[in-house]
Design a protein around this nucleic acid. Structure first.
Lengths: 202, 202
DNA sequence: CAATGTAATTAATCGCTGTTTAATAAAGTC
DNA sequence: GACTTTATTAAACAGCGATTAATTACATTG
């Protein structure tokens, strides 16, 4: 068959990733496959290997797009105008909301573990660094007398905490109250900050 | 071939689960398969279906054993003699240590999401409830004037927080400092408790 | 325009997976 | 010893990621 140049390489890549996102959203990561993606865009499965190194590479590129979406979702300029504590609260709520809105994409982002041979792509690591940077900013406003390392560690701790809440909620069954995740993240952030301020004044 | 009754049903089940744990520890959950497990115990893959409903069921039973191990690891009576704050710290460190010692089993416990059709087995839910109970005890000692619901929510929040730290550490690359997880969990617990106490006195 | 070379696309194949089915062999029963 | 029951397996099925050879379309040259 081979209708050549009907789509450019980049077009094919974009079509495949878009189709994969749709399949992922509708059927979950378990049901995702090269054959289904290829069929969805009217190509053969083998053609995907001209655009992706392998299935793992395709997943990384999916995750990269998801991370970009997540960063954009946290990029409301409202965070700039709010006071630092409220900004942190807002980040937490937005993170949980993102995990709710895109459960499958968000889940793939963290369930897809690096298969030991290759390490995390640079662009993914940069996005994660960017994510932590967002949290460090209001934190450094709140704790001006703390070192950059302490701010960085606190940012990672708080993000890990909110992430853990999202993880447990995603795996159902761990919370009886459904609306509890938001409140839990809120108190986690509030009490951590209050406690840290208490440490300093002591 | 069919040498019958060489092993009882329960023996076969035990052999399969033990072999699966070895394979899991050595090669990870991705490499685990019914054929490999069966070969390891000198049986055919089909024989496993007399003891396990399906592969998912086998994973659930693996996870059940892992949860039992985790509960046992947290069952040091030292927690009873320590003051509440130190007991919580100890639980956190022991949880992180468990995730370090059994990375593959611990990972399977949370990566293996329920495939929608069947819900989490009762025995697993009970074990999780037991886990939360352990955390609630020192918390209720620290915060005697709080309601059971508030204690319960705090226990889940703190456990989610420590769990999130373990998750991020397991997926490598998210922390530059390797020994940082312990310190992060420690400060998370300490500052949360301090902050909560501050809330009360206010 | 025709011939050649090149690159895209696919059908077929490989080895793997979980799962089911029919055949087989051993044990229990009368 | 004959018959039933049950454990066990080999074989098959559908699907997976990945590779390969063949085919088809395009581009380039003479």
């Amino acid at each position: 068959m081979a209708r050549r140049n009907e789509h450019s390489r980049d077009e094919l890549r974009e079509m495949a990733l878009a189709a994969a996102e749709t399949l992922l959203d509708q059927q979950g990561s378990e049901a995702l496959s090269t054959r289904k993606i290829a069929t969805a865009i009217g190509y053969s499965a083998g053609s995907l290997y001209q655009v992706f190194k392998n299935y793992d590479d395709l997943c990384w590129q999916l995750n990269q797009r998801t991370l970009a979406m997540l960063l954009a979702a946290l990029d409301t300029d409202a965070a700039q105008t709010l006071n630092p504590g409220a900004a942190l609260q807002r980040y937490g709520q937005q993170y949980l909301a993102f995990a709710t809105q895109w459960p499958q994409r968000w889940s793939l982002l963290f369930e897809h573990s690096t298969p030991l041979d290759l390490d995390t792509p640079d662009e993914l690591e940069q996005a994660i660094t960017q994510l932590f940077g967002k949290i460090e900013q209001p934190l450094s406003q709140l704790f001006t007398d703390r070192s950059a390392e302490q701010i960085s560690e606190a940012a990672r701790t708080l993000w890990a905490g909110v992430h853990g809440i999202a993880v447990l909620r995603a795996h159902n069954k761990l919370f009886q109250v459904q609306g509890g995740a938001d409140a839990m993240a809120s108190t986690l952030l509030e009490r951590y900050i209050l406690g840290w301020q208490q440490e300093i004044s002591a």
